[in-house]
Write a protein that binds this DNA or RNA. Structure first.
Lengths: 345, 345
DNA sequence: GTGAAAGCGCTAACAG
DNA sequence: CTGTTAGCGCTTTCAC
């Protein structure tokens, strides 16, 4: 009862040619007589034939699938990344295999292992940790097997991989500088994980600005976060309840910004009046709500595109490059009002 | 220079057995002597062997990949769906191929066509339109080829597919009823697309409550939206600026709720005071911001899990069911304050 | 320009 | 328990 997909033999038979000829016309390859081409195309249409990509992959020993590994699908940042990657991938006929690691190193291990079974053509990954030895080994082994790996946003201690990152430090530096120049002197920061490039770099941007303008950085103004809402919320709340609270907070990622806003709202503070805030990464929802939160941001979808772009470059290139290419996108400072030094401060 | 993946022959040779034996131990299948098993395992470890799933798929003519087709990756609703699907998929060793249709019927066509090349094991899809004949034909052809299809949230005019939906109508009914019982008499709605099940059903819930309690429904209180922020924003603004504005609005999905909130905020209205609102689908961000928006919601991640679950059921079942199974999840009404009939109304 | 045939790496009878 | 062998559907020499 249930239909079968036609295969190349049936097409050959229907068209009265050999399977080689069918293969040729399907691949727009070497010259085929107009007559044969037509007969094949007719058969294809008649039998509604679609070549089996699995067989093709096996035969050519290379697939048209790429693996994309994200630590948290639910974070809008990664949704946007995914959007960018899939867009370019589809344009070029590549399939996207999605893997979610839930920020767990163990899960990342499992995912990477399972990826090896599928002879992927390339990999885009935001590693859970920048210091997981196992992940590094796994990824390196992909690279050794000529499966290009591009790191996204987070990096690893190995120059062999391509990577797309942003000017985090500089962006944050400019943000904090603008706070200082706006009159703030008590500026706190809620950092990201200090084991990650982004965490370190964003913190460094803060430090640099503060040092350059000789603004004191009391220990209690430096709060270590983990890029998660809950932790940021607690730290922000603690900050605001300090005897000498900061007049401004820099929050190191989108979730951290949410945490700050939650704390601010719960304490009944007015943003840009009682407390100022600049966050890293823009948040669509806040703009829709007219929140006017100032941010350091980058074109996230474009980051995804670039990552896929680097992969495509690798595919084109015959010899794998010795050293990975590091693509750095700009970070933009967008001031919307939440950075203002309030009248009441 | 670049390493090769070992194949089954190399393992067989290294272990001094035949490839059949290697295959057997890799598949935990029929009895193999402890001695052989050990020798194979040693070889596997030594050569770091991972079976090639492409070859396996070709040989068994069935893959371990499922396709998930969403209309908008960037919408948190679908991020959560994806989360649910991938979670269960990974648990059962299935790969997830991600396809984004960007709410475009044309793109959906392309995607579906490209999916046929990959002999997928099953498909989870939220179709762009419930009336696209082409999509229906394509999906039916998958089903005919024993590739189960489960529809998610949106439906199609063919009972043959499995589907997971929610009690949208009833949920909305209860929401609107609670508005009425709270004292509202001027209740507007911003609907979803009326070609979709969810759009129709949610509107029907509104109507039912209004009719049952004999609350008048002036034409200008019924606004047709498209589940998008922009449109909802405009409609909400228009509603609020009516000579006789509604005291409450029901918004038919998460983006619509954002649109309403944007309008409300721009007009300087106070939620739950000057205007009340209940939305369909919960929005994490709003809760973090202490927005207290009341909603009709469902466990979205669970919807994704169920969809994958239905797929797994189909895989287990030998004979494809005649009629699809329709899984209906409950919708819950969560009142947080934004539904209150304000003192000033 | 076209066909025959040898793989790609693995599974699954079928004999032993 | 284990090896031999015939596919799975397609690509790709290599002759003709």
């Amino acid at each position: 009862m249930s239909k079968q997909e036609a295969n190349i033999y049936e097409i050959a038979k229907e068209a009265g040619v050999s399977i080689a000829t069918v293969s040729r016309v399907m691949n727009h390859s070497t010259s085929v007589s107009e007559k044969s081409r037509k007969r094949v195309m007719d058969a294809v249409k008649l039998l509604n034939y679609v070549p089996n990509s699995t067989a093709r992959s096996l035969s050519t020993s290379q697939s048209m699938s790429i693996g994309v590994v994200v630590p948290d699908i639910d974070n809008p940042f990664f949704s946007k990344i995914l959007q960018g990657v899939t867009l370019l991938a589809e344009e070029h006929g590549y399939q996207v295999l999605l893997y979610n690691t839930d920020e767990s190193v163990e899960k990342e291990q499992k995912v990477l292992r399972s990826m090896r079974e599928h002879r992927l053509r390339g990999i885009v990954i935001t590693p859970v940790s920048e210091h997981s030895k196992e992940t590094l080994v796994q990824l390196r082994s992909f690279a050794e097997r000529s499966i290009p790996v591009v790191l996204l946003d987070r990096e690893l201690d190995d120059p062999c991989f391509d990577r797309v990152v942003t000017e985090d430090e500089d962006g944050v530096y400019r943000a904090v500088r603008s706070l200082i120049q706006g009159g703030h002197r008590r500026i706190a920061v809620i950092t990201g994980p200090q084991q990650s490039r982004t965490g370190k770099e964003r913190f460094r941007g803060y430090e640099r600005a503060m040092e350059e303008f000789r603004v004191p950085m009391p220990r209690e103004y430096i709060r270590y976060g983990d890029y998660r809402m809950q932790c940021a919320y607690e730290e922000a709340k603690a900050l605001c309840q300090l005897p000498q609270p900061p007049t401004a907070i820099f929050s190191s990622n989108n979730m951290t910004t949410y945490g700050c806003l939650k704390a601010i709202s719960e304490l009944g503070l007015r943003l840009g009046e009682d407390i100022s805030l600049i966050g890293f990464d823009d948040i669509d929802a806040l703009n829709w709500l007219n929140y006017n939160v100032s941010v350091v941001c980058r074109d996230v979808k474009e980051m995804g595109r670039r990552a896929m772009g680097l992969l495509l470059d690798c595919f084109d290139r015959e010899t794998p490059a010795e050293e990975g290419h590091r693509e750095v996108l700009p970070a933009e400072l967008i001031l919307r009002g939440s950075e203002r030094y309030g009248h009441d401060l």
